[in-house]
């Protein structure tokens, strides 16, 4: 179980892995995630979105960026090795139907979870406008895959090293100004990007769905570490989400909570690098 059947480096820090997990491959739907652990005794459980799956091969595809201890341990595994714990699919699947025109916005690593959703929306008969962006050219992922399913496709980078030199919110605004405006938007990426996408669409009253990636311990509703304010309610990302109405999410609180352990992790990381223990 959980053998890595394919490993590919997509950009400097971003890896793609196909992992044997036949039951998850069979059950998963767009929008869902898994929790994984690289060491069953002392490892941390982290949530990762399922980027793709093949029921036939019994594999799921994970795309992740190396940002901390667990993702770097994961990236160190080779093809043929197994990930000790993979559990899922978790979270509510994305609600897919024919809405009309849907604009899908992906930022950085967020393009990975966006891909299966865009795919499903296209399959349901929607007109899909896709905007993907990254800080710089070599951080862009899945461009060909996204282009292949989009009816209209825009790519941009913050530094102008590829495509349009713009933040994704700029083309998003243009799309919203079109007549008729899109039926809905889906934005997935870093929290700040999702926050500003929601701010961009708010004046146009274009419903904007975001997919949140908060701190989680169990991923099954038990710890409450992933809680966010959505409107006047407190929601658990793992069982109520991960997708919510971006116009109602309290992004500032969510971003603040994401930094809960920053001090500890930075210190620990530095300690390990410098071998101070």
């Amino acid at each position: 179980m959980n053998q890595i059947t394919l490993k590919k480096q997509l950009s400097t820090d971003v890896f793609l892995m196909k992992v044997r997990a036949p039951l998850i491959a069979e059950e998963r739907k767009a929008g869902q995630f898994i929790m994984l652990q690289v060491d069953d005794d002392f490892g941390e459980r982290i949530p990762l979105t399922i980027a793709d799956a093949s029921e036939k091969d019994g594999t799921i595809t994970l795309i992740f960026q190396v940002v901390g201890k667990t993702t770097s341990d994961l990236a160190a595994l080779s093809e043929g090795e197994a990930i000790p714990s993979v559990v899922g699919p978790l979270g509510k699947p994305t609600h897919i139907e024919k809405f009309g025109t849907v604009v899908c916005v992906g930022g950085g690593i967020g393009v990975a979870p966006l891909h299966p959703i865009a795919q499903a929306l296209k399959k349901a008969g929607n007109h899909v406008i896709t905007i993907i962006g990254a800080r710089t050219k070599n951080l862009l992922i899945l461009e060909d895959e996204m282009r292949a399913i989009a009816d209209e496709f825009i790519v941009c980078t913050d530094d102008g090293s590829y495509g349009r030199k713009a933040l994704v919110t700029v083309p998003l605004k243009e799309v919203c100004e079109k007549n008729p405006k899109p039926a809905m938007a889906i934005a997935i990426g870093p929290p700040v990007m999702m926050k500003f996408c929601a701010e961009t669409t708010r004046p146009y009253k274009v419903f904007t769905q975001v997919s949140l990636n908060t701190i989680m311990v169990d991923g099954t509703g038990m710890c409450g570490g992933c809680r966010v304010n959505v409107g006047d309610k407190v929601k658990f990302v793992c069982v109520d989400g991960p997708e919510f109405d971006g116009h109602l999410v309290d992004f500032d609180n969510m971003i603040s909570r994401l930094s809960s352990y920053k001090d500890i992790e930075t210190k620990k990381h530095r300690c390990k690098l410098e071998g101070c223990k």
């Binding site: 667990t70 169990d218 710890c223």
Partner: peptide, 28 residues
């Protein structure tokens, strides 16, 4: 929802199941 507010479930799960009581060795 301030940083530093935990459910007992989260606090205990980290310390027990994820072994974060052992700060030096646990990743959590």
């Amino acid at each position: 929802n301030l940083i530093g507010v935990f459910s007992a479930n989260e606090y205990l799960t980290r310390a027990n199941l994820m072994r974060a009581f052992d700060r030096d060795n646990a990743d959590t």
